[in-house]
Design a protein around this nucleic acid. Sequence first.
DNA 1: GCGCGAAGTTAGTGACCGTTAACGTCACTG
DNA 2: CAGTGACGTTAACGGTCACTAACTTCGCGC
Lengths: 202, 202
Amino acid sequence: MSTQAAPGGTSRVAAPTRREQILKEAARLFAERGFHGVGVDEIGAAVGISGPGLYRHFAGKDAMLAELLVGISERLLEGGRARVAAAPEDPAALLASLVDGHVDFALDDRPLITLHDRELDRLRESDRRRVRQLQRQYAELWVQTVRDLHPATPESEARAAVHAVFGLLNSTPHLGSGLPDRDATAALLRRLAHGAFGALGS
Amino acid sequence: MSTQAAPGGTSRVAAPTRREQILKEAARLFAERGFHGVGVDEIGAAVGISGPGLYRHFAGKDAMLAELLVGISERLLEGGRARVAAAPEDPAALLASLVDGHVDFALDDRPLITLHDRELDRLRESDRRRVRQLQRQYAELWVQTVRDLHPATPESEARAAVHAVFGLLNSTPHLGSGLPDRDATAALLRRLAHGAFGALGS
DNA sequence: GCGCGAAGTTAGTGACCGTTAACGTCACTG
DNA sequence: CAGTGACGTTAACGGTCACTAACTTCGCGC
């Protein structure tokens, strides 16, 4: 770990490290044109350096994708666990909290959401297993909560419903541009998700 | 132009033409590993010929993808229009019919559904515009129906809800393998979709 | 049988692209 | 100020891959 020496004087807020710039631009480009559709020269150009200069910061193109996908999955799971720990008693409130968190994530990190379910197969076997395990654990938090709320629902059905609602919430990249402001969209997605889960009750 | 003329009638069913075999296998492979992740040799091997033999049937790899995506979009729109024409009076029944059709499509043509929202950017400009136009028209059928059913809903909100429900229904590829039988899954997806749309009413 | 076109085959070919090599440039540090 | 290491540069290499060329095979109408 390097690079956090604030030069000369008071460290201003969040000087984004080169690595972070690269990851952010790579995520955007990968989401736009796919992993194979983006060249390293392009990624470099997006951060003002060109081509092989990236290899001072990453072992290779694959390593960027791996770090992105593992990072997303870890953050999602971590956030989910925090919410579970914060509201252990009330399944309805917990589900609402999980939905809130996922909606925020989907709206704030759209490129990452896109990558998350699109480029998983381009990873090395070990990384892919790790990401899948994190995803599975995250989904399991939701499945447990849904089953606490609707005890009559069989597990396979709850799991399918959870993944379907993930699909619903992760649709934000497809909404394009002509959508209302962020808060209205978030509120709409929350309502739709709860409406879908509510259909499990009947 | 075409290969086989069925004697005594229109070319009704089957006789799976080479072109169709190729398209089917290409769809599966593209969905599995992405457009750039599949080589022409692989597509050829999947239908028993190898490599450049494909160029007897298609102008290039791009042409296969284009034909797939345009075909999906046309079939979706055509099916949607037929349903609109068949039930012009009752918005609730029409919405149910649209949902039924989309669920069938999502369950029967999973690879195509995957391609549909994943590889659009690999098309030539003209094909991409055509596909987008077809998609937009299809979505508009849904938006109109939703607004007939929930007149208080603003158009932008209805449109976002429709795309979100598309995301829900198109989540079937992510459900993987451990899901119940087809009919049960279809019923679940229908319930979830209607639950989500129902949340627009309140 | 003969010609012919549809459908394949194998052997290139050229372009692209990820990666490495070799080299330059500063900012610090002792 | 010499030395060093982080950070970039351009040039080149090697592999992959879509696509083309040249050639074979085969069914079929006349």
